[in-house]
């Protein structure tokens, strides 16, 4: 089994993985349960994480492909004690219904704000095509991202 080193939410990790272990398998196996498996095909974005700052479907990346990389999951974005401004905005707008897709959406939104601190609604909606919310709660989600970006 290949042995890999990577940083997850700022913590150095060295672990053995099997070839077939995807990044999502590794992360969930280590207890990062914010990473959700939805479609397993790169459509729904529920498993989105940042790998070296790039938005990635962790269900389509093998764990070995993340060797030497810096991984950021929702757990690394904010905690209950110290939530990220995106998370606060999502609470303000009650932008979560069943909540399954929200970790992936917060990761996608963080990726957007990291690159583009003042996105237009069009840009927010365009990047969020990477995520599917089956409750269909998009309006509040978009409003929450706008608020976090300081637009509201």
């Amino acid at each position: 089994m290949p042995k890999i080193g990577l940083r997850i939410n700022g913590v150095q990790v060295i672990t053995e993985v099997r070839g077939r272990d995807r990044l999502i398998d590794l992360l969930r196996g280590m207890g990062f349960m914010s990473v959700k498996e939805g479609c397993s095909a790169g459509d729904c974005g529920s498993c989105n994480v940042l790998v070296n700052g790039e938005l990635v479907n962790s269900c389509l990346m093998l764990a070995v492909q993340a060797r030497g990389c810096e991984i950021l999951t929702l757990e690394g974005i904010g905690t209950e004690e110290k939530p990220h401004r995106l998370q606060l905005a999502f609470v303000d707008f009650a932008a979560s219904q069943c909540g399954y897709c929200i970790p992936g959406i917060i990761v996608t939104a963080k990726y957007l704000l990291d690159r583009n601190p003042n996105p237009t609604e069009e840009e927010i909606r365009r990047i969020l095509t990477a995520n599917i919310c089956r409750c269909g709660g998009y309006t509040r989600i978009v409003e929450a991202v706008k608020k976090a970006a300081g637009a509201i």
């Binding site: 099997r18 070839g19 077939r20 995807r22 398998d25 498996e37 070995v64």
Partner: peptide, 16 residues
């Protein structure tokens, strides 16, 4: 099917 219900990929050997 693993313990937490995640479907795994079929087994293969990996080269890097």
């Amino acid at each position: 099917l693993t313990a937490n219900g995640v479907r795994e990929l079929p087994d293969f050997s990996i080269f890097t």
